[in-house]
Computed example of a mutant assay.
Amino acid sequence: MTNAPLAIDLVPLFSHVTTWVFDLDNTLYPPEARLFDQIEVRMTDFVMEALGVGQEEANRLRHEYWRDHGTTLAGLMRLHGVEPGPYLDRVHEIDLTHLERDAALAEGIRALPGRKIVYTNGCAPYAERVVAARGLEGLFDAIYGVEHANFQPKPDRAAYDIVFGLDGLTPGAAAMFEDDARNLAAPHEMGLRTVHVAPEAAPAEHIHHHTDDLGAFLRRIV
């Protein structure tokens, strides 16, 4: 019989952190909430109308732009000159009533020492709605959306430079929690501690930690 490996002591690995950066979608709520099922339908409808293409082509472009440009919006702006405001308003007009408040996650965030911010490729008003629906209102010092990065999306390094500059955080004293593994590459390069929040791990040199339970992971830090 072999002994199970001891859990890593996370406290000293995060003891230097004074700013905690959280992505929004599929990070501050679980993927099972399936908000993107609603958002993707609205994205496809917008692409169909903006570009005059059918549903199949709109779906293909939506995924292609996400893959190649970071977000569907970035591709629409760069290749077609689409204005971001109407797009962001439309795709985020979704139903959040099924989101559940998460007292354990709220307690974990509240216990973190230092500054706590949200940084999303969505827009800030949408992020504020999600934060409230999850029972996390009042826990964050700032909420930044893609509009704060001049509509440049993660994973573009320039987007992080802008948002982190606005916030005034010190990258070497910050940690980032994110569901999209590619969005942790630039933060890692900048010196942040990186945590991949997802059902399955995606081992990579730019990912320090993985968790499928953000609340439980935060409790191990403090």
Rank of each mutant, 00 (worst) to 15 (best):
G70F: 06
A104N: 01
R101L: 00
H69S: 06
R62T: 12
T27P: 08
D95C: 06
A104P: 00
D89C: 02
E107L: 09
L73H: 04
E57D: 12
R78S: 14
E32R: 14
L105H: 02
R67G: 00
A103C: 00
T18C: 09
V118K: 04
R62Q: 15
L51G: 09
G114A: 06
F46I: 07
M48I: 05
E93R: 14
L61H: 04
R42C: 08
L79T: 11
V41H: 11
D25V: 09
G75R: 07
M43L: 13
D37Q: 13
G52F: 04
A50G: 02
L79C: 14
K116L: 02
V41M: 08
W66G: 00
W20E: 11
G70C: 05
V53S: 05
L76D: 06
H63D: 13
L96Y: 05
D23V: 10
G81L: 01
F14D: 08
A106Y: 00
R90F: 12
L10I: 11
I109D: 01
E107T: 11
H98W: 08
P31F: 08
D37C: 00
G122V: 08
L24K: 11
T120L: 04
R62K: 13
W66E: 04
L99A: 02
E57A: 11
L51F: 04
G114R: 07
R34Q: 14
L112I: 05
A111E: 03
E56V: 13
L96A: 06
E57Y: 00
E49V: 12
R78G: 11
D25R: 09
F36Y: 13
P84S: 05
T18L: 07
R101Q: 14
D102K: 02
N59M: 14
V91K: 02
W20G: 10
V11D: 07
R101C: 05
E83W: 01
V91Q: 03
A111L: 03
I117P: 01
W66Q: 11
R67N: 13
L24E: 11
Q55N: 10
E56K: 11
Y87Q: 05
L112W: 02
I117K: 03
L105C: 02
D102S: 01
